[in-house]
Structure formats: C-alpha cells, structure tokens
Measured scan of single mutants.
Amino acid sequence: TIDDAFRAIERAIQAENEGRYREALKHFLDGGEMIVTAAEKEASQKVRNLLLHKGKEVLEWAEHLAEWILE
C-alpha cells in the first residue's frame, strides 16, 4: 500500500541519516517499487501519473545512492 511505501521511505531516510547506507538503499528501493505497484492499480489517471512520478523519483534517488556506495 501507499502507507507501507511511505513507511519504507521514512525508514530509508532515518537509516541514511544514521549512516546505514545499504539499509537505506534497500528501504528506498522497497518504497519506490511499492509506489509504482500502487500506481499500476490506480483507477484515476491523474493519481496514477502522480504516483508514477513519485515512485520514479524515489527509485532514481536509490540509484544515485547505490552509485555513491560503490565509489
């Protein structure tokens, strides 16, 4: 659900702030994927587009974090 997705993102932010970057990455990926999944089930085109945009933002952040971890 969207609530689960945002809880995962909150955990990711907390982990990132505490320097637990790999854990943060996992939570960002989980949250982003949950948002995209919820968007695919959404009946309203406007809400679907907003959710897809937010999911994409979260997944892009996860990608940047992963690249930073690997440096």
Rank of each mutant, 00 (worst) to 15 (best):
V36H: 08
A12R: 00
L59E: 01
E71K: 10
F6A: 04
F6S: 03
G19T: 04
K54A: 13
A8W: 08
L29T: 06
M34L: 11
N17I: 13
S44H: 11
K54Q: 07
Y21P: 01
A38T: 06
D3C: 14
N17A: 14
E42G: 04
E42F: 10
N49T: 04
I13E: 02
I35C: 08
L70K: 13
I69A: 03
E57P: 00
K26C: 14
E67S: 10
I2W: 06
L29C: 10
L65C: 05
H53T: 13
E42Q: 08
M34V: 05
Q14H: 11
E60H: 13
E33F: 13
E10W: 12
E40A: 14
A62P: 00
V36I: 15
S44L: 12
Q14D: 05
I35K: 00
T1G: 11
S44W: 12
E23M: 03
E18H: 05
T37L: 12
E10V: 11
A62V: 06
L65W: 03
K56R: 11
A38R: 04
A39S: 04
E71I: 09
E63V: 12
K41I: 07
A8N: 06
H64F: 06
G32I: 15
G32L: 15
A38N: 01
I13P: 00
A15W: 03
E71S: 11
G55P: 02
E42V: 14
V58Y: 08
K46Q: 11
W61E: 01
H64T: 08
E40M: 15
A8M: 15
E23R: 01
Q45T: 10
I9R: 03
E16K: 13
N49H: 08
T37P: 01
S44M: 12
R11F: 08
A38S: 09
E57M: 15
E18P: 02
L50C: 14
D3G: 10
V47P: 01
I13K: 06
F6R: 07
A38H: 06
E60N: 06
L65F: 04
N17D: 04
V58C: 06
A24Q: 04
I35H: 03
E18R: 09
G31N: 00
A15D: 02
E33A: 15
F28N: 00
R20K: 07
E71F: 05
D30I: 14
I35S: 02
A12L: 06
L51F: 03
E40C: 15
L51I: 04
K26V: 06
L70G: 11
W61K: 03
E42A: 13
T1V: 09
L52Q: 05
E10M: 12
K41S: 10
E67W: 09
G19Y: 01
F28C: 05
A38G: 04
W61T: 03
I9M: 03
H27D: 07
H64K: 15
L50Q: 13
A38Y: 07
L29Q: 09
Q14N: 09
D3T: 13
A24E: 01
H64I: 10
A15R: 02
G55C: 11
A43N: 12
R22E: 13
L51E: 05
I2T: 04
I35V: 04
T1F: 09
H53V: 12
K41H: 09
L52E: 10
K46G: 10
E67T: 08
T37D: 10
A38Q: 08
D3Y: 12
V58D: 00
E10P: 00
E42I: 14
V36L: 15
A12Q: 00
G19S: 07
T1I: 11
E40Y: 14
A39K: 02
E10C: 13
A38K: 02
A12Y: 03
E60D: 09
L70P: 04
R48W: 07
R22V: 10
A15S: 04
R20E: 03
G31D: 02
G19C: 12
D30K: 14
H27R: 03
E10K: 08
W68E: 03
G32R: 07
R22D: 10
R48H: 07
E42D: 02
K54P: 03
M34C: 08
V36Y: 08
V58M: 05
V58T: 01
I9D: 00
E10A: 13
E57F: 07
E63F: 10
W68V: 08
L29S: 02
K56C: 13
A66G: 04
G32E: 03
A15F: 09
N17K: 14
A12S: 01
T37S: 10
E23F: 01
R7L: 07
E33T: 14
L50T: 09
K26Y: 08
E40F: 15
A5L: 06
D4P: 03
Q14W: 04
E60M: 13
S44D: 15
M34R: 07
E10F: 08
G55K: 02
L51G: 01
I69C: 11
E40D: 10
L65D: 01
N17R: 13
E63C: 14
Q14Y: 03
E40G: 13
K26M: 09
R48L: 11
I69D: 03
A24W: 03
A24V: 02
H53P: 02
E18K: 04
